[in-house]
Amino acid sequence: MNIAAFSLLTIFTLATAAAAALLPRLIHAALCLALSFIGVAAFYALLGAEFVGLVQILVYVGAVAVLIVFTILLTHREDGKGVSAMNWGGVAVAIAVFDGLLWAILKTPSLMGATANSEPITVKQIGITLTAGYMWPLQCTGILLTAAFIGALILVMEEKR
């Protein structure tokens, strides 16, 4: 992957993710979240997993981000107090974890000399693998999604007395 593309995309994704985390207004944060998802999808495309990128956009941006926006709208407070303060302890823990992960990455020597294989993957291949090798997880995921969907409905449904 091209270094230039990588660095641009990195900056974009990280910036929007930071915005999603740090912006005081909730709706702004949700929208920035969607942007960061798009950035990640571009990443996937750059890394040769275009299908995953498209799935990402479909699911994350199309469903999750929208769901978040809807929830924000449903739980919106009239007094306009959408401001959330920051807890600096949490920030410290996050930074510590980041340091730890970096250190873990740098400590592993085998990562340095890794080379990329330029074998692309086609949708056909993905489809065959899914239905041939990964049928079981596929069906389970289907059940899971059904259960989640029904569950969320029941949760949110208002009791009519």
Binding site: A20, A21, M86, G89, V91, A94, I95, V97, F98
Partner: peptide, 10 residues
């Protein structure tokens, strides 16, 4: 880490 920060501090 950015995600973690969001979880822990907002």
């Amino acid at each position: 880490s950015l995600g973690l920060m969001a979880v822990l501090s907002r």
